[in-house]
Structures are given as structure tokens and as C-alpha cells.
Amino acid sequence: MIVVMKAGTPEAEIERLSQEFVSMGLEPEKIVGRHKTVVGLVGETADMDALQLQELSGWIEQVLRVEKPYKRVSREFRHGEASQVFVSTPDGAVPFGEHEPLVIVAGPCSVENEEMIVETAKRVKAAGAKFLRGGAYKPRTSPYAFQGHGESALALLAAAKEASGLGIITEVMDAADIEKIAEVADVLQVGARNMHNFSLLKKIGAQDKPVLLKRGMSATIDEWLMAAEYIMAAGNPNVILCERGIRTFDSRYARNTLDLAVIPVLRSLTHLPIMIDPSHGTGKWEYVPSMAMAAIAGGTDSLMIEVHPNPSKALSDGPQSLTPDRFDRLMTDLAVIGKAVDRWTDSPLPVLA
């Protein structure tokens, strides 16, 4: 359920109502929108009478039921408004959201050595990226494939962060690693293979770093949003959804099927920011530019693009990685589309207080 307050409702009245909702066994969450404040109610509300709840205060405009199985994730929960996820980086606060400038995330699949990751960070930063992606821990289909350098790679990501000023996004595979990864990472990534790891989702939701949740390889949209609900139900409201391609019947020409139709679908269902990963979505670097531009035109809030200084020698996912020079050219092309849809800016980032 959501309780929509009238414009100008005193803060003391919202606090009084929240305490009353708590006494009724509910969990109230205050959501401050552009024009009104909404109080989301989580708990056993099925048998509650919306009209009776509305009589609790003359400041209540209306009480509405959230019909979706995912509550906090639902756009209804925010009375139709989009949410923002602000991520603190060395260069300032970067906002992800429907009404914010496009955010570019770039870097290699895996952190291989210090020279490679620092060089890549500087190049993608110069081209306009705000975040460096790079795996310290890598889930691989084969147990014999490169699994990442693990904890030692975190120090290399920290060095790249210091050298470039970029924010860091890297994957968490094991709940036991959350604390040490969070010391370096500005956004914690849950990979496609762990989207249904509910124990990990709960634990990663109990910390305060923003979370990037990738869609599972065969996950439906409802399953993906319910996975996000696990994170938010554990207390972390800062979730970004990442479409990275799904497994369908034809994998001969592209690694996955990049579901760009998910952008308008998610817009109607959830208030959370959306990221598109055309690198994993296609598996071939030559297809990445077209899908990246299409994603911007379709309304994505962010792009994740793999960049490697020498893709032919990459330890993982070389065929889908752009060289820094190709990334430079792509950013020039993306700027044209981004400016056309009013999602591109060269202005400096706001600074968090």
C-alpha cells in the first residue's frame, strides 16, 4: 500500500502517522517526490481497509494498493515517480536516473595487471566515462578458465581509482567478500549468474553501497524485479538494473539476445535506473556501437562497455572488447545521440555534502 499525502503536509504529521503505522505492524517508508510525499507501507496489508486508513488524518489525499508482487521496486510504490541513485566517486557525485544525464561505465572484463588497468582507466576517463568496470572475482562457465586475481586485484582497482578519479564497479560473488570489496568499489555488482542467489542478495542489501543487479541469463522480467526486491527489502534502496542479454535459441551470430524492449517495459513497471550492457549482450565488439546507440535512443540511463588495450590478448571476453581508440570514436558518436535526446552533458559533477 501507499499513502499519498497532500501537498504541504507538516513533517510532524507524517512522523505521527508513521509511528501509528508501526504500531499496526507495518513498515512505513517515506518517499519525498517532486510535488508530494508518499508513505509506502510494507507488511500484511491485504485485509486492511484503504478507506479506514485514509480516515487516520485529514492530510491524507488517498490510499492505494500496490498490485505488483514486488512492492518497493514497483513504480506504484513511488506514485509513478522515478528514483535517483547517487554514487559518490573521487570526482564527485554521479546520479543515475530517468531524468539524469547518461552515465558511461567502461573497462575490461577482468583486472589483469596494474599497467593494464591504470592505462585503461585513464583512457576511458579522458573519453568521458564516469566509472571503471573490472572484475577481481570472475564467475566462469569452465572451472579451467581465468577466474580473476581475487583480492590482489582489488588493490589494482584502488590504484586505477586514484590515478583516474573514476568510480569503481566490480562484482561480488561471495557474501564473505562484501566488506573488503566495498572498501574499494563504489558500486557492488551482482552478476547474471548470481541473480537468483537469494542469500547473497539479502546480505548485499544489508550494506549501504549502491548495487548493480544484472539480469540472469534466462530470467524473466518479473524474476529480475523480484531479485531487486530482495535487495531493497533488506534495507538498500539504491539499486540499478542492468540488461546484459538473455539466452535464446540462436547463439550462432551473437553471444546473447540483447533485450532493448526491456527499457520501455521497465519504465512502466519500476522506478529504478536502467543500464544496458551491449558488450555481453552481443559478444562481438563490432556490434557494440549499434546497440549502444540504440539503447540511448530507447531511453537507457547508463551504458556498460568493455574496453581493453589489447583485446586479442585479453584473459577474458576479448572478442567483445573495444580498443581505447575505438571507444574514443564510439563516445563521439554516442554524444550525438545523447544530445539529441537531452541525456548528454559535459558539465562537472555535483559534489556531495
Rank of each mutant, 00 (worst) to 15 (best):
I2Y: 03
I2P: 02
V4H: 04
A7W: 04
P10T: 03
E13R: 01
R16P: 05
L17I: 09
S18C: 05
L26W: 07
P28Y: 13
E29N: 06
G33I: 12
V39Y: 01
G40Y: 02
E44H: 08
T45W: 08
D49K: 08
D49G: 07
L53D: 02
E55K: 14
Q62W: 05
Q62L: 06
R65H: 12
R65F: 10
Y70M: 11
Y70Q: 10
R72E: 12
V73E: 02
H79E: 13
H79P: 00
Q84C: 06
V87K: 00
V87A: 03
V87H: 01
T89V: 10
D91P: 03
D91S: 11
G92C: 06
A93S: 15
P95R: 13
F96A: 05
E114D: 14
E114W: 06
E115T: 15
I117E: 13
A121F: 08
R123W: 10
R123I: 14
K125E: 14
A127F: 08
F131Q: 14
R133Y: 14
R133L: 13
G135D: 07
G135K: 00
P139A: 07
A145Q: 13
G148K: 02
G148H: 08
G148D: 14
S152D: 15
A153G: 14
L156F: 10
A158K: 11
G165K: 08
L166E: 14
E171Y: 01
D174S: 08
A175H: 15
E179H: 12
I181K: 01
V187Q: 10
V187K: 05
L188R: 14
Q189N: 12
R193W: 07
N194W: 08
M195N: 09
H196S: 14
N197D: 15
L200F: 12
L200P: 00
K202G: 13
Q207Y: 10
Q207L: 08
D208Y: 04
K209D: 13
P210R: 10
V211G: 13
L212C: 11
T220Q: 11
I221M: 13
E223C: 04
E229S: 04
I231C: 09
A234V: 09
G235A: 05
N238K: 07
N238Q: 11
V239W: 02
I240D: 06
I240T: 10
I240H: 04
L241E: 01
G245H: 00
Y253S: 06
Y253R: 09
N256Q: 06
L258M: 03
I263S: 00
I263P: 00
P264K: 01
L269I: 08
L269D: 10
H271C: 05
L272P: 01
P273H: 11
D277H: 03
P278V: 05
G281Q: 07
T282K: 02
G283D: 00
W285C: 02
W285M: 06
Y287M: 12
V288E: 00
S290W: 06
M291E: 02
A292C: 06
A292D: 03
A297H: 01
M304A: 09
I305Q: 02
E306G: 08
E306K: 05
V307W: 05
S312F: 04
S316W: 03
T323Q: 11
D325A: 11
L330V: 02
D333V: 10
A335R: 12
A335L: 04
A335N: 05
G338E: 00
G338W: 00
K339Y: 08
D342E: 15
W344Q: 01
D346E: 15
L349T: 13
